[in-house]
Amino acid sequence: MAKTFHLEIIAADRIFYQGECEHLVITAIDGLMGILPGHEPLVTCLPTGELKYMTNGKWHYAAISEGFIQVLPDKAVILADSCELPEEIDIKRAEEAKERAQEQLRQKQSIKEYYQTQAALNRAMNRLKISQKHFK
C-alpha cells in the first residue's frame, strides 16, 4: 500500500472528492505540479485546467475551473468554482458556450467584457479538451 494523504476537492455546488490519495497533479499558473504525501505546506492558485489524482494505483481525471489549493503536511484542500469528471461534462453545452464566446470575441467589447469572454471561452475549451481526452 502506497503512502497516502487526505485530499478534499470541493466545488461551489458539491463536494467532488473526499478521501485518500496517493498522488495529485494539478495545473498551476506556471505549469503542472505534482503533489505527493509529505509535500511542504503550499498555497497556490489553479486556473482553469486539468486535474488528476491517483487512488489505489488508478488515475482519476477531472476538469476544474478557477480555484485554489492549500497543501498542509497531512492533507490538501482544493476549492474551485466547478469540478467535473470527464463523463459528466455536457459536451453540447460546452460547445454552445464556446461558440457564444467566439461570437462575442468578434464583436466590439470593453476590456472587461473581453476578459470575461476570454475566461468563458477558456472554460468551454477546457471542458471539451478533457472530455475528448478521457471520455470516448
Binding site: 505546506p41 498555497v43 497556490t44 485554489f68
Partner: peptide
C-alpha cells in the same frame, strides 16, 4: 510555520 506560495504571496493573494 509559514507556507510557501507559488509563484509569490502577492500573486496568489491577488488571485485568491
Amino acid at each position: 510555520p509559514k507556507a510557501s506560495f507559488s509563484p509569490s504571496p502577492e500573486e496568489v493573494m491577488s488571485y485568491l
